[in-house]
């Protein structure tokens, strides 16, 4: 389907933030809803041009974090900088430079796809008609159909076009892949990759799909119960976390040697399995050096397995489960 739009003033995008300053910086950010602490003392820095995957169980605070970045929520404590701007004080200037894709597009149900794009375009200073048309064609969005009649997958795609066509410096995606079939997810991921402009753009996307995160993201931030339990390069995480199987003659020494930090442990008779946060720093050697301990094997974990261990043991305390 051909998507055509009337000529629109092609004003160049705003000057990007200096390359050395982070695209997103949060320092000690806390957000409460009544007595519930949604985010607790979050400090996070995402460099420009990077793609960060934000993962966490339901209710971990992912949506709240994204809304704080857009200035749609007011933090109880801490400071937030997005593209060098204050999301609350400089909300309009910031939103001109940010694209946002929610979990579902809440546009008025009577609007057609074309009307949604025309409406968004009218409120933007910059809008790339060619890009919008290309994406609409690529994603097969029916522009004459009303929002109320569109499937969830098509709504996400429409929201993605509306967010990407202004060629933002920062793209925020809040669980857009949730509930989508694998084909639709694939299309969304491909679109994010394909739509990336020549200049650096930063992407923060929250997702339950660790596959998508592993495929897209340079770095991963893990939120559990409102706390940021990990933020770092995805590859580093995959390299660092290790599963260690050991045979222990007597009881496992407590506390474990310094430098052996575990997400969790599991016991089956005399055999123990530890999931170590950082297996590259001599932790495994220290375990080997323990009296009565024989290391049987060291294995890598998938991102999904790592995430599950992080979610179960957010504070880093040893979580012992016995199968004996």
């Amino acid at each position: 389907m051909n998507a055509t739009f009337a000529p629109h003033a092609q004003v160049g995008p705003a000057t990007p933030a200096p390359a050395h300053s982070p695209a997103i910086s949060m320092h000690g950010v806390t957000k409460r809803f009544g007595t519930t602490v949604a985010l607790d003392d979050i400090s996070l820095s995402i460099p420009p041009g990077s793609i960060c995957g934000l993962v966490g169980p339901n209710g971990a605070g992912k949506t709240t974090l994204v809304r704080l970045l857009l200035g749609l929520e007011r933090p109880a404590a801490g400071t937030i900088g997005v593209l060098g701007l204050d999301p609350l004080r400089d909300a309009l200037a910031l939103r001109e430079r940010v694209g946002y894709v929610p979990d579902t597009l809440h546009a008025d149900r009577w609007m057609t796809g074309a009307e949604v794009l025309r409406f968004c375009r009218g409120l933007r200073r910059h809008w790339n008609d060619t890009l919008a048309t290309r994406l609409v064609d690529r994603l097969g969005i029916p522009l004459k159909t009303r929002v109320g009649s569109l499937s969830r997958g098509t709504l996400v795609k429409l929201g993605l076009v509306a967010a990407v066509a202004p060629e933002p410096e920062l793209l925020l995606l809040d669980e857009p892949m949730a509930g989508l079939d694998p084909l639709a997810r694939e299309e969304v991921v491909e679109t994010v990759i394909a739509a990336a402009p020549d200049r650096p753009w930063t992407v923060l996307f929250s997702s339950h799909s660790l596959d998508d995160v592993q495929r897209l993201a340079d770095s991963i931030a893990v939120l559990v119960a409102g706390r940021l339990v990990h933020h770092g390069a995805t590859d580093d995480l995959l390299t660092a976390v290790r599963r260690v199987r050991m045979r222990v003659d007597d009881a496992l020494p407590r506390p474990l040697p310094a430098g052996v930090d575990v997400y969790g442990s599991q016991r089956s008779g005399r055999e123990w399995t530890l999931v170590i946060r950082d297996g590259s720093g001599g932790a495994i050697e220290r375990l080997r050096g323990l009296p009565g301990v024989e290391v049987l094997g060291v294995d890598p974990l998938s991102l999904e397995e790592i995430f599950k261990h992080m979610a179960r043991a957010p504070s880093g305390r040893n979580e012992e489960r016995s199968q004996s």
């Binding site: 857009l70 309009l92 939103r95 597009l105 809440h106 008025d108 149900r109 409120l123 933007r124 200073r125």
Partner: peptide
């Protein structure tokens, strides 16, 4: 009520 306010909220309009 119909949550369309959430659609406009992130757009650059006061």
């Amino acid at each position: 009520a119909d949550r369309s306010a959430e659609f406009i909220a992130p757009l650059p309009v006061s």
